[in-house]
Design a protein around this nucleic acid. Structure first.
Lengths: 259, 259
DNA sequence: ACAGAGGCTGAACGGGTGTTTAGCATGCTG
DNA sequence: CAGCATGCTAAACACCCGTTCAGCCTCTGT
């Protein structure tokens, strides 16, 4: 059935011994990662050194090609390796966030992922759910180990943190033009730019007094009256009922610019 | 010169007394905000009750229409009011972040902005710079007033915070389908989902010990050896040179999942 | 050797796109 | 009234897109 996998091998180029199907998929992955999903099938075919008709012949339609790329990226994430580049063998853990950090090896899949997040779709939603779950359990481990502060709503926090990291990466990639020759460059630059402020924010926070947090926590559904996980009873929490009819206390990083 | 502003008025529909040019711009704004910038000119023209040729006649090209929408959104932001809907008059402050929060009135422009951020382009870059500058000064005010912690790199922090808030909104909007009838709904939902975790993160932080922050700060270019702005000398900062050849300490919300 | 199957292609099709062109109706101006 | 600019449109143009079709070439089994 899959006899097409055995083909005349022994080519000269390092990619020549790949199936045409695999070559098309790789070209599409790269093209979609750099140009977005609006990239024409003809261009993908040209990248793979193949006629546009063959793309359709193998994948049925452009959407089929997209699905094949999605599936491939999913397996890359699950297996933690990227056979397209420098197959440095040993299987790593199925850690999505770590993969996003380890960009040197996973440049193209990472860029593809960001484009998928940008465009929405099923792959994005499923991966977000995976990342939320993984982040949730990682945070729980940290809380138990005493390295991470407990939260009043661990699920909401995990989801929020995933949206923060994924979203800022997506926005950064949309704003800065990425070099097609070095697909991992922008993530590297993003991290070198955000390493210090993120470390500051995540260990020290931003706000000094707790009135805003207390006000929001008071209106949060299904919460104990005062968990008070912080060992800092310095400022007396304002017991004022807070004239806030709805739970939308400005965007989070705009604390009190219109008081 | 602008005699076209005076037209036969006294229509029945609340929008009938607008110039056709303004009607086209409004339709494009709404259509781009909901469908993205790939929306066809023909559809915009149909929304405005006008022929496609007239769109080109007034704006030169689709890109010209896009530019007009950009400029309009910019003035809406600068003036702090949205004459398209419920012109509740009184000029507000030119506060972009507050506008993002005040979504009830600014639904369509906000959605348009997010689509612009998603697609990149000049409008997005310029507005990001404005927001960075505004956030920077707001944070400085807060630091002086004693409500916000000082940072080792105020510029980097302002830029990072803007990317966080904008990016998470963009990702949220890309992942969840937005209701065209209620353009502000998704921002409202986003905020009700993220109010508590953001308040927690921004007042309490996430990490308990400071080793990661110290390690990053040690390699940050142009930084005093130990500013130590935190009034918490509880844990002894590890003076270890930190075996980290490059400044990429994982993604910020993945603290130590692969130790 | 011959038939068949499958990888593969050049050329075309049908539909959607932004834009152009020629012309219509209207209102202002001499 | 003629002349003309202006707002506006129907129709077409030129292009790009994804996809289809008929057929070529090269293997492989008998």
């Amino acid at each position: 059935m899959f006899s097409m996998l055995i083909m005349r091998s022994g080519g000269s180029s390092p990619e020549a011994d790949l199936t045409a199907r695999a070559r098309i998929r790789d070209a599409a992955l790269r093209r979609f990662a750099t140009d977005g999903f609006g990239a024409p099938v003809r261009l993908v075919a040209a990248d793979a050194g193949v006629s546009p008709a063959l793309v359709i012949h193998h994948f049925g339609s452009k959407e089929g090609l997209r699905r094949a790329c999605d599936e491939y990226v999913r397996t890359v994430i699950a297996e933690g390796k990227d056979p397209m580049y420098a197959a440095s063998g040993a299987a790593r853990r199925a850690d999505l966030l770590a993969m996003l950090a380890d960009v040197e090896r996973f440049g193209v899949p990472t860029l593809y992922l960001l484009k998928a997040f940008q465009a929405g779709g099923d792959l994005a939603r499923e991966l977000i759910e995976d990342m939320v779950e993984l982040t949730r359990s990682t945070l729980d481990d940290g809380v138990r180990a005493g390295t991470i502060r407990p939260s009043r709503d661990a699920d909401a926090r995990a989801r929020y943190l995933v949206m923060l990291s994924v979203g800022s990466l997506v926005a950064d990639q949309a704003l800065h033009p990425s070099d097609p020759a070095d697909p991992g460059a922008f993530v590297r630059e993003y991290m070198s730019r955000s390493a210090l402020p993120s470390a500051e924010l995540f260990t020290e926070g931003l706000l000094i007094d707790r009135t805003m947090l207390d006000a929001v926590a008071a209106t949060w559904p299904g919460l104990a009256p005062d968990p008070e996980p912080a060992p800092d009873p310095g400022l007396a929490p304002d017991p004022d009922p807070a004239p806030e009819p709805d739970p939308t206390p400005r965007t989070s990083d705009d604390p009190g610019t219109t008081p």
